[in-house]
Design a protein around this nucleic acid. Structure first.
Length: 208
DNA sequence: CCAGACGTTGTT
DNA sequence: GTCTGG
DNA sequence: CCAGACGTTGTT
DNA sequence: GTCTGG
């Protein structure tokens, strides 16, 4: 955790942990107040169901403020942090894709900017969240056209405390030089894995 | 006007 | 809830 | 991992 | 029930 231990305290014990977490799973998300297990895939408060038929696991930075599904959370500055060890991207053609793992060079968490939402109806209620994406930059351009909005520690504090007013400056101050990526085993999603080897290079010198 | 969408990425 | 498409 | 499809012929 | 897609 390093310097992140204060911001990411109050870890939600009911959040799911694992490798290659997918949309709809309950993931740990942190607001300025606390950590909560939230559904990955924001559910707007007007939704008839605690799920959506359309994809809300990512929100494009270019349009997040305008989209009906995100606007309520945006207007209320319901910002959150979503931590991970790293994330995957796949390269290659269908059926023969090579996964890469992207993470900070140091051992600290990769912290992504998100928005959260609260949905309730009758006796049901649900916290949910989305991860904001943007065009890739720097070395990540080689890997994939899009990437999450990744926050430095100071930026993460601002995102929680100041809300969406500082959004534009976060976008223009992306420092991805502290990240590295490397190919990993294709069995990345098998639940039987202990996982430890997944964040190690597949073979020395094979990194793109 | 009413019905239907409301979203993003592109692997396993 | 609010916008869009027919 | 979970949610959603799972199918074919050929009109409006 | 089982496969596929995200």
């Amino acid at each position: 955790m390093g310097q992140w231990s204060d911001l990411l305290e109050d870890w939600p014990e009911d959040a799911e942990l694992g490798y290659n977490i997918a949309p709809t799973q309950m993931i740990p998300a942190f607001t300025a107040e606390h950590g909560l297990a939230m559904r990955w895939g924001i559910v707007p408060p007007w939704s008839k169901e605690p799920s959506t038929k359309y994809a809300t696991f990512n929100a494009r930075s270019e349009s997040v403020a305008d989209k009906p599904a995100f606007r309520h959370a945006w207007n209320k500055s319901q910002t959150c942090l979503i931590p991970a060890v790293g994330y995957y991207e796949w390269q290659g053609t269908k059926g023969n894709k090579q996964p890469f793992f992207i993470r900070p060079e140091n051992e600290e968490p990769l912290v992504m900017a998100g928005l959260w939402e609260y949905w309730r109806q009758n006796e049901q209620s649900l916290y949910s969240c989305t991860i904001i994406t943007q065009a890739s930059s720097g070395k990540l351009e080689d890997l994939h056209s899009r990437m999450p909005l990744i926050l430095e520690f100071d930026q993460a504090e601002q995102w929680l405390n100041d809300g969406v007013s500082i959004f534009e400056q976060l976008l223009t101050n992306q420092n991805i030089e502290r990240l590295k990526f490397y190919p990993v085993d294709k069995d990345v999603n098998r639940s039987t894995h202990e996982g430890e080897h997944l964040i190690e290079p597949l073979a020395a010198g094979e990194s793109a």
